[in-house]
Write a protein that binds this DNA or RNA. Structure first.
Length: 482
RNA sequence: GGCCCAUUGGUCAAGCGGUCAAGACGUCGGCCUCUCACGCCGGAAACAUGGGUUCGAUUCCCAUAUGGGUCACCA
């Protein structure tokens, strides 16, 4: 390949990173890295009304966090800046006028009233709304006169009235549409800024983008972009359109429900690597029987042919599992560091956090599960004696009571209160009594926690709680069973 | 509604004319075990429907159904 692969991620600064958008960025990044090419970041802020404070910073932060590093962009520069569209307005105006001269566009002076009226009539007669080409029929003199008189204008694309336009997409194949179905869209708005339809073509060309990766919602306007490239006499990029990520059949992931953005997931205790790994496989498959991949592995494996055409439903179950896989790969220290905010949220008592982490490490799917799992540490919850009844352990309220009564003096005698001592002492007791482990240890676990399920068993919980608290809970349990 | 596109288990998906139709998540059963989880073993579960083409269709073509996208001075 003579030309270096150059891809771009061109988000508009909306204030949050939609997971589908992030996936598009990931694919663009992967394609560039796979081919030793370049990945550029461009901010599409031509809609001034949608400007959101801090949104651009969020984009930088997300890309940096996830490791999708860009080679060119507003914050680091590059040979084809500016990388912020609102700062390129002169460029678009120049090209728009150039296009008018080439016959690919025309000035339009229609005001909002006329446009609204036109649309109303079309809707009433059940005709698809479309600009009627009114201003395309203006003579050069009329245009000059209006321009001179300072009448506000936009520049519209001039679509051939007949014929068809075709393009090739790497995932969807060849697509052909009738030009008659295409509208003379606005290219340059009356505020002098371009619409997306125009800016993306001009910028992709000027920035030497070779592969355009974007959502399939742009599929239907791609013929218009092709017409633009043709009118300018520019080379076409390779098109790669990807289908959307759905929440469930018929429903998109939504911002409102707080389940759509990267920040939402991070906030819920998901690991960035797990998120990236999961979304990489949502709509793309390397065709291997492996599902855990590092970014580097993905970059080596990525191939357009693995992108699927149909929309993919986001499966939170699978993300949970994958997040658990990543959590288990953390070292105990890393786990503790990441879990700390959640520990502090739920545990005020003094405990050995490393010991706690050892219990939680294999049992945590996402960090936000931690508070609920450790809520018994600060305060023994109210519980029912029914908890002591367990068929598999062959325990009853009565057997539990005598078990705990036997445990009490043993525990009181333990000097060095740690897991090993507790284990040895209780094992000795069990052997001496000639019963199964569960007969003693299961009731102890319930007495320590008051919960049906806990991270770790009786010995571990007692070690964690400390001698005083353990004895206190033990006595309380015996009393409760009496 | 017009136009464009898609359709393999509940979900992600492999498959690219001949397979007992992979794998993963989830689910179910079992083992391990001081509960739960982790781990391990095993099970159930799919080619939307109807026509063609072909010796042979999940794979190719056409309908139907369902789903997605798009029809802005938003991107």
């Amino acid at each position: 390949m003579a030309n270096k692969v150059r891809t771009r991620f061109a988000p508009s600064p909306t204030g949050y990173m939609h997971i589908g958008n992030l996936r598009t960025a990931l694919y663009a990044w992967l394609l560039a890295r796979k081919n030793g090419g370049e990945f550029v970041l461009r901010i599409e802020d031509t809609d001034q009304e949608r400007y959101v404070e801090g949104a651009v910073e969020l984009i930088y932060k997300t890309l940096a966090d996830t490791g999708l590093t860009h080679d060119e962009g507003p914050d680091i520069g590059g040979d084809y800046g500016s990388y912020i569209q609102s700062q390129r307005r002169n460029i678009y105006a120049k090209y728009a006028k150039d296009l008018v001269e080439r016959g690919g566009a025309y000035y339009c002076f229609c005001d909002k009233e006329r446009l609204d009226q036109l649309r109303a009539v079309q809707e009433a007669s059940k005709v698809p709304p479309k600009y009627d080409g009114h201003c395309s029929r203006l003579s050069a003199e009329e245009v000059e006169a209006k321009l001179a008189a300072g009448v506000p204008y936009v520049i519209r694309q001039k679509i051939p009235r007949e014929g068809t336009t075709s393009f090739h997409d790497e995932v969807f194949g060849d697509i052909t549409v009738d030009n008659a179905t295409l509208d003379d869209n606005v290219l340059l708005k009356s505020d002098g800024l371009p619409t997306y339809n125009f800016a993306n073509v001009v910028d992709d060309h000027l920035m030497h983008i070779t592969h355009v990766i974007r959502g399939s919602e742009y599929l239907s306007s791609t013929p218009k972009y092709n017409l633009l490239y043709q009118a300018f006499g520019w080379a076409l990029p390779v098109y790669i359109h990807v289908s959307p990520v759905m929440k469930e059949a018929g429903r998109k992931l939504s911002k409102r429900e707080g389940d759509a953005s990267y920040e939402d997931f991070i906030g819920k205790g998901y690991l960035k690597d797990a998120i990236i790994n999961y979304i990489a496989l949502l709509g793309w498959s390397p065709g291997l029987e492996q599902d855990i991949f590092t970014l580097d592995e993905l970059a080596a494996l990525f191939d357009i042919s693995g992108i699927s055409k149909s929309p993919a439903i986001f499966d939170i179950n699978k993300l949970n599992w994958m997040n658990g896989e990543y959590i288990r790969k953390l070292s105990l220290d890393e786990f503790t560091a990441m879990a700390m905010p959640y520990y502090r949220e739920a545990v005020k008592r003094e405990v050995n956090y490393n010991a706690l982490s050892a219990l939680l490490h294999d049992r945590t799917e996402k960090f936000s599960d931690i508070p609920e799992a450790v809520d018994f540490i600060d305060a023994l919850p109210e519980y029912d004696n029914e908890l002591y009844v367990n068929k598999k352990m062959k325990t009853t309220a009565e057997s539990s009571k005598s078990a705990l009564e036997a445990v009490l003096p043993v525990m009181e005698r333990i000097g060095e209160w740690d897991q090993a001592q507790l284990h040895d002492a209780l094992s000795a007791l069990i052997e001496q009594m000639g019963v199964k482990n569960g007969q003693i240890l299961f009731p102890l676990r319930v007495a320590m926690s008051g919960k049906k399920f806990t991270p770790g068993g009786g010995v571990e919980l007692a070690a964690l709680l400390g001698k005083d608290e353990s004895i206190k809970r033990l006595k309380k349990a015996i009393q409760k069973l009496s």
